[in-house]
C-alpha cells in the first residue's frame, strides 16, 4: 500500500460517518454556539459572552469559558480558565505537575464537570450534556494517554476494533475502518501481534489508531510521549502532526521541552490552575 490511495481512503471516510451515530453537528458556527452559550449561562453570569464573538470562536473545536474546578476535597485545580482552540489547530498544553493539565483534559472529555463556567467541544456544551449523551461526545474525541491503555490480551487489530465494537458499529464496517486506522499509523504489518510484543512507540501508535478509528474531530493526548525515549517521541509527534494535517484538531499535554520548543506551535502554559501564557509559536520554559 502506498500512502496516496490511503489518504484518499481516509479523506473519503471523513464525511461519511457511522450511520447509527447521530448526524454530525455542523462545525461550531455562531448560530449554534450563541444559543447554547446563552442558555448555558442564563442568569448565572453577569459578563456577556463576548469571547465567543472572537473570530476564532466561529470554528472553535474546543472552548473553555471562565472555567474553574474545585475538587470535593477542596483542592482548586483550575481557576478562571479561558481557552479557545479553533478547528484544525495544534496546541501544546504545558505546565508543571499539578498545574491542572489533566483536570483540563478530564473536563474536555467530560470525565469531570466544571465547578463554574462552560466547556464546549465541537459546538456542544459538555458541562450541560446529559449523561446518556456522553458516549456520543466521546466518539467525537480521540483520547491518547501516556500509559497507552491497551488491552494486553487483544491483538493490535482487536484493540483498535474494540473501540468500534463497543460502540455498536456494524461488523462489515469495522474491518475497513480498522485497516485504514492501522495504515494511518503504519502498523498494518503488526496487526496480529499482541501489545506485549510491541515497542513502546508501536504501543502508542496502536493507541493513536484506536483514537482515530472513530474519525474524531479532536485528538486529545495526555503526555503521549511521557513513557517514550526521544527518538520514538519524535515519531509519535510526527504522526500527530500528520493527523493534524488531515484536518483533526490536536491538543497535546506535554512535558517535553525540546519537542514543544522545536515545533513552534501554539503553546498554552498552565500554572497553579491558571493560564499564565498562551502564545502562538510559543516557547516552553523548562519546568
Amino acid at each position: 500500500m502506498t500512502s496516496s490511495p490511503l489518504r484518499t481512503a481516509l479523506r473519503s471516510i471523513v464525511p461519511t460517518r457511522n450511520p447509527i451515530e447521530a448526524p454530525p453537528k455542523p462545525l461550531a458556527s455562531p448560530a449554534v454556539v450563541a444559543p447554547l452559550e446563552s442558555v448555558a449561562t442564563l442568569g448565572r453570569r453577569t459578563a456577556p459572552p463576548e469571547d465567543l464573538a472572537l473570530p476564532e470562536a466561529r470554528l472553535a473545536s474546543l472552548a473553555l469559558h471562565d472555567v474553574s474546578k474545585v475538587y470535593p476535597n477542596g483542592k482548586r485545580a483550575l481557576a478562571d480558565v479561558d481557552l479557545i482552540v479553533p478547528e484544525g489547530d495544534f496546541v501544546f498544553l504545558v505546565g508543571p505537575s499539578g498545574a491542572g493539565k489533566s483536570t483540563l483534559i478530564k473536563l474536555l472529555i467530560r470525565d469531570e464537570l466544571p465547578t463554574t463556567g462552560s466547556v464546549f467541544v465541537a459546538g456542544q456544551d459538555v458541562s450541560h450534556l446529559r449523561r446518556r449523551h456522553v458516549p456520543r461526545l466521546r466518539r467525537q474525541i480521540g483520547i491518547v494517554f501516556q500509559d497507552f491503555k491497551l488491552l494486553p490480551r487483544k491483538t493490535v487489530r482487536e484493540n483498535v476494533a474494540f473501540a468500534l465494537e463497543v460502540t455498536g458499529t456494524p461488523r462489515r464496517m469495522i474491518r475497513s475502518r480498522v485497516d485504514s486506522a492501522l495504515a494511518l499509523v503504519g502498523l498494518s504489518a503488526q496487526a496480529r501481534q499482541l501489545p506485549t510484543t510491541l515497542s513502546g512507540g508501536e504501543m502508542q501508535r496502536t493507541a493513536i489508531a484506536r483514537a482515530m478509528v472513530h474519525d474524531p474531530r479532536v485528538i486529545i493526548a495526555d503526555e503521549p510521549t511521557g513513557n517514550l525515549d526521544p527518538l520514538i517521541s519524535w515519531e509519535i509527534i510526527q504522526l500527530l502532526l500528520r493527523i493534524n494535517d488531515l484536518g483533526t484538531t490536536v491538543l497535546m499535554a506535554s512535558h517535553n521541552a525540546e519537542v514543544v520548543t522545536a515545533l513552534r506551535k501554539r503553546v498554552v502554559a498552565l500554572e497553579e490552575g491558571r493560564i499564565i501564557r498562551d502564545e502562538v509559536g510559543g516557547y516552553h520554559r523548562e519546568y
Binding site: R136, R138, K149, F162
Partner: peptide, 10 residues
C-alpha cells in the same frame, strides 16, 4: 475504563 473512554454506551 477503555470502553467508557472510546464512547461505549452504558
Amino acid at each position: 475504563e477503555i470502553m467508557r473512554l472510546v464512547g461505549a454506551s452504558d
